[in-house]
């Protein structure tokens, strides 16, 4: 949100928190976010079999946050 949408931190946190339906405080609470990341399948720090990783996780994040991520768009261009 900062790099591609020039949002200052409070605005960026609020945008993400609203999209994820949590509070901005929750964004840096690892217990909340760990479970949420697994539930939303947007990638976790640990390597959990079957969960989205790398580009797959980013594609889901782009969808959740309603943003475009360049490499996800590149992947779409390559799809038949």
């Amino acid at each position: 949100m900062q790099l591609n949408h020039r949002m200052r931190l409070p605005e960026a946190k609020k945008y993400v928190a609203d999209k994820l339906k949590v509070s901005t405080f929750d964004l840096s609470d690892s217990t909340v976010m760990r479970n949420l990341r697994e539930e939303l399948d947007i990638g976790c720090v640990e390597a959990i079999p079957g969960l989205a990783k790398g580009l797959a996780a980013k594609a889901r994040i782009a969808d959740l946050l309603d943003i475009k991520i360049a490499c996800v768009e590149k992947l779409k261009e390559k799809m038949p």
């Binding site: 790099l3 947007i42 990638g43 990783k53 790398g54 580009l55 980013k58 490499c71």
Partner: peptide, 10 residues
């Protein structure tokens, strides 16, 4: 790296 990581990659 764009396909294996999740964070913004510059």
């Amino acid at each position: 790296l764009l396909s294996t990581t999740i964070f913004p990659m510059l």
